[in-house]
């Protein structure tokens, strides 16, 4: 087993999935902000992956893509994006809906145009929430197994991730691979959570 390759594939699928999930969530929330009647509908749809077994979400992706995403790493990323959607959508939604209009008005009356207002007032207000959404999406994607397995399979050197690699090692009784892949998974999780906490702590101090 090429552990480094498995790690890179995992990071590629998880990072891409997180970014897809982040931007899709952002677009939905901006739509909801504009068309408030859509809120209940999108709140319901985005919460579904949390309640459904991941294999159903995976199968849904295969059906919708007419099989084009099967056994492709990007299919795995989309699977990760759908599974992370409830967490990421909720975090971004709370962040955007809590933007204080009074602060924006104050900045504008002090002479700030839209560009400066976003850079100096809005961005500091949303950055912690957006970072949190990205980290949550990434952490969830790293550990994703069910939907990814259904969509992108477990092809060594192409779509095999840490989770599916551990699954294969358990099936074949390859104990050393189980330990090494588990250790890599734990290390990635620890580093990610450490950075997440560090950023949150820094922002909390600034406030």
């Amino acid at each position: 087993m090429n552990y480094f390759e498995i790690m890179l594939t995992t990071l590629k699928i998880a990072t891409t999935g997180t970014l897809i999930c982040f931007f899709v969530s952002l677009i939905i929330i901006l739509l909801v902000k504009k068309y408030k009647k859509l809120k209940s509908l999108f709140d319901f749809i985005t919460a579904l992956p949390l309640a459904l077994p991941p294999v159903i979400s995976g199968y849904f992706i295969i059906i919708v893509s007419n099989g084009n995403l099967s056994f492709e790493w990007i299919g795995g990323s989309i699977a990760c994006a759908i599974i992370s959607l409830p967490l990421v959508y909720k975090m971004i939604s709370v962040t955007i809906l809590s933007i204080d209009q009074k602060m924006i008005n104050t900045a504008k009356i002090l002479g700030s145009d839209n560009k400066h207002t976003f850079a100096f007032i809005v961005f500091p207000m949303i950055k912690t929430g957006f970072f949190s959404a990205l980290f949550l999406g990434f952490i969830r994607s790293i550990s994703e197994f069910g939907a990814t397995m259904i969509v992108s399979g477990n092809i060594s050197g192409k779509t095999q991730t840490l989770s599916t690699g551990i699954y294969t090692s358990i099936q074949t009784g390859d104990k050393s691979s189980i330990y090494i892949l588990s250790l890599i998974s734990i290390l990635i999780a620890v580093i990610t959570i450490f950075i997440f906490n560090l950023i949150n702590k820094k922002n909390a101090f600034e406030l």
């Binding site: 009074k102 602060m103 504008k108 009356i109 145009d113 207000m125």
Partner: peptide, 18 residues
């Protein structure tokens, strides 16, 4: 508002927390 050249102190606290 940004081009009205008005100084305005609102009733509630509106200092930028960051």
């Amino acid at each position: 508002p940004n081009k009205r050249s008005i100084s305005y102190v609102q009733q509630e606290d509106s200092l930028f927390p960051y």
